[in-house]
């Protein structure tokens, strides 16, 4: 009976959203100068292995696989104020959920996602041997996603606020931040927090950073996910930048029936002028 109820519940439009990212273009670092602008693309592949309720796999092997293409842009008026826009496109998303008899039912989603606009306000500081910034960031989520069998993006208006602090030395990077979102619909409040630690390296012609990034995602329905993993950023020639990252869900608790225990891979390329 429980299995039947869970199966029916899973047909409701529950939250299957991906993490609303705190990261901003370009690679969250640039441009730091007036009139600077840039754009970046990245491909994201995410696979979640099980359908969870609480911390346990209610339906083991009922997976979700998502392939996304992100287009993001940034413009810096003055060094302390930027406008960023992030538009995802669902190349292909497919999830397995239980039908009324507990067997697998496949649902798919494709097409444009919701647009995120942000206005990061920065306060820079330069101390002895370190340079960094504080960030305050109001955000707006604009619903553009269409209707499919299920939705990666929730197609709802939302408002968010983000706070961040970061600094770099010649060798190390430290970044910490959090943001919170409220929605004009059924979606619960959610927050996304991150702690990024990095090691900077210099090559003969350029430079890069190796990061260990930890993310914590919380939704006000008892859902919480702790994911972490390495990332590599490389500055090719001050104009072209690339980044690759992998994150693994190390702790996943779903307040409602949802997919979890996932891995995410991202490959990004950016241009800044």
């Amino acid at each position: 009976m429980m299995r039947f109820i869970l199966g029916v519940c899973s047909l409701f439009p529950v939250v299957f959203g991906l993490l609303l990212k705190a990261d901003e273009p370009i690679m969250n670092m640039m441009p730091r100068w007036s009139g600077g602008w840039g754009y970046q693309f990245f491909y994201e592949h995410r696979r979640e292995r099980d359908l969870l309720l609480g911390s346990s796999a209610r339906y083991r092997g009922f997976s979700e696989e998502v392939n996304l293409f992100h287009l993001e842009g940034v413009y810096t008026w003055k060094k302390f104020i930027r406008l960023t826009a992030k538009l995802p496109y669902v190349i292909h998303a497919e999830r397995e959920i239980p039908d009324a008899t507990g067997n697998k039912r496949v649902q798919k989603d494709e097409g444009i996602g919701d647009l995120t606009l942000a206005l990061p306000l920065k306060k820079y500081f330069n101390l002895d041997g370190r340079s960094g910034s504080w960030t305050f960031k109001p955000m707006l989520l604009v619903p553009l996603a269409g209707d499919d069998e299920y939705e990666i993006y929730d197609n709802e208006w939302g408002n968010g606020i983000g706070l961040g602090y970061e600094f770099e030395t010649s060798q190390f990077y430290f970044g910490i931040g959090t943001n919170g979102w409220v929605f004009y619909g059924d979606e619960p409040f959610e927050s996304h927090s991150f702690l990024d630690l990095g090691y900077n390296f210099v090559t003969e012609q350029s430079n890069g950073s190796l990061f260990w990034e930890t993310d914590f995602h919380f939704e006000d329905d008892e859902s919480r996910t702790l994911s972490a993993g390495p990332a590599l950023y490389f500055n090719h020639n001050d104009t072209i930048h690339s980044r690759i990252e992998w994150k693994h869900d190390f702790a996943d608790h779903q307040g409602i029936l949802d997919h979890g225990n996932g891995d995410t891979i991202k490959l990004g390329m950016a241009w800044v002028f």
Partner: peptide, 12 residues
């Protein structure tokens, strides 16, 4: 240039 300790933040 004071504070110029990281290559990426100095791109500007």
């Amino acid at each position: 240039v004071k504070g110029l300790v990281c290559p990426s933040c100095g791109i500007g």
